[in-house]
Design a protein around this nucleic acid. Structure first.
Lengths: 205, 205
DNA sequence: ACGCTACTAGAATAGTATTCTAGAATCAAA
DNA sequence: TTTGATTCTAGAATACTATTCTAGTAGCGT
C-alpha cells in the first residue's frame, strides 16, 4: 500500500542519492580525495544524513562496493546459467566480465580501486555470503566438467584466476587508461586463450 | 672518496629509514590508516625531515612504489634474460612473479594496494620510463618468438595479461589472505597454463 | 491530537596533513 | 681556517576534513 511507503520511499531515495553522489565523486576524484563535503554537495544532503545512514565515509564506500559486487555477480550468474557446455561457460564468463566493465565504467573503476581495503566487518561478511552463493553454484558446474574430462583437473584455486585473470588484467589497464583499444576487439582472443589454458596438455616440448 | 660523502651518506640513510619505516607502517596498518606521525616515530625522524625529502605523504608512498617497481623489474629482466626459448621465457616470467611476491611480501602487498592511485606526476613519469626500458626489451624478444611461430600472433596488448594475469590473480588472493596454499605447489600449473594460452589454436570445438 | 521514532541539519570537536620559522650541520671558496 | 651558502632537521603553528553532538522536523501508529 502507498500508506506505509511515503517516508520509506523518501529516505530510500536519499540513501540512493548519496550513493550515486559518492560514486560520481569517487570516479571523478578518487576515493581518498573526495571529502564528505563533496558528497554532501553532490547528493544535496546534509552531513548528518550521511552519517545517519552510513556511519562513516568508509561506510558509504562499503555500501557502494557491496552494491557493485551484487550487480556484477547477479549478471555473471545469469550469463553462465545459459551456457550448455564447458567451453560456452568459459566464454560466457570472459565476455560478461568485459561487457560489464564497459557498461559500468564508473562502478568498475571504483570496484577496482577498492578491491583491496578490507571494509567494515559487517559488509565484509555480506560480501563473503554473496560470494559463497554464487561461487558455490559455479564450482558445482565446474566439477561436472572436470569429471567429464572437458577441462583439466587442476588445483581448485586456479580455475578462477585462469578464466578471468587475463581479462581482468586487460580491463584494469583499460579502466586506468594504460591501454586504449576497443575491448570488443579482444573478446574472442581472450575467450579462446582462457579456454586453451584449461585444456589438459599434450606436452609440446 | 669519503670526503664528499659524509653528509650525503647520512641523509641517504635517513631517507632510506623513512622509506623503511613507511613500508613497515603501510604493511601493518594499511596506507590510508598510517599517519605521518606513525612514520615519524618508526623512522625516528621529524616531520620536517619527511616533508623536506618527500614533500607529502603521497610523496613517500610514490617513492616507495617506485623503489618496489624497480626492484621487481630488474629481477624480471634478469630472469627472462637467461631463457633460451619461448617456453622457457614464459615459464621464467611466471615463476619470477611468484617468487618475488613470496620473498617480498610486505612490498608486494604494498604495490598491490597502490597499483591504482595515480601518484605524483613526476614519479608517474619515472615509472613510465622504467617500464619502457624493460618492456621494450621484452617486446623485442617476443616479436622474434611470434615471427618464428613459437607463440600465437595476437593483439599486442594481450601478451602481458595472458602471461602474468592468472599468476597475478593468484598472488593477489594469497597476499590478501583469501587463499592459503603454498604457492610453490601452483608454479608448474600456472607456467603450463600460461604457455598453453599462447599456443596457436587447433580449434577443439 | 499525541507521543514516538526515523530522519535531517548544521554547528562544534577532534584528529591529521601540511606549512612555517628557526636553527644546526656540512660544504665550497677564499 | 673562516665565512657564507646550502641542505637538512626540528617542532610549533595552521588548515583541512572526518566525525560527533545537539536540536530540531516530519511521518507514523494509536
Amino acid at each position: 500500500m502507498q500508506i506505509e511507503a511515503r517516508r520509506h520511499v523518501a529516505t530510500a531515495a536519499r540513501k540512493q542519492a548519496i550513493l550515486e553522489g559518492a560514486l560520481a565523486c569517487f570516479a571523478e576524484l578518487g576515493v581518498e580525495a573526495t571529502t564528505i563535503d563533496d558528497i554532501r554537495r553532490r547528493a544535496d544532503a546534509s552531513v548528518g544524513s550521511i552519517y545517519h545512514h552510513f556511519g562513516s565515509k568508509e561506510g558509504v564506500a562499503a555500501a557502494l562496493y557491496l552494491e557493485g559486487i551484487r550487480d556484477y555477480q547477479a549478471g555473471l550468474a545469469a550469463a553462465v546459467e545459459k551456457a550448455r557446455n564447458a567451453r560456452a561457460a568459459v566464454r560466457a564468463i570472459v565476455l560478461f566480465h568485459l561487457d560489464w566493465a564497459m557498461q559500468n565504467t564508473a562502478l568498475a573503476r571504483y570496484l577496482l580501486e577498492m578491491r583491496r581495503a578490507e571494509t567494515t566487518k559487517s559488509v565484509d561478511e555480506e560480501i563473503r555470503d554473496a560470494n559463497r552463493d554464487v561461487f558455490q553454484r559455479l564450482a558445482k558446474r565446474l566439477e561436472v566438467f572436470v569429471a567429464r574430462g572437458d577441462i583439466a583437473d587442476l588445483p581448485r584455486e586456479l580455475y578462477a584466476p585462469l578464466i578471468v585473470g587475463p581479462t581482468q588484467e586487460v580491463v584494469r589497464a583499460w579502466l586506468t587508461g594504460r591501454i586504449n583499444v576497443d575491448l570488443r576487439k579482444l573478446r574472442d582472443s581472450l575467450a579462446e586463450a582462457a579456454w586453451k589454458s584449461l585444456q589438459t596438455g599434450q606436452q609440446t616440448t
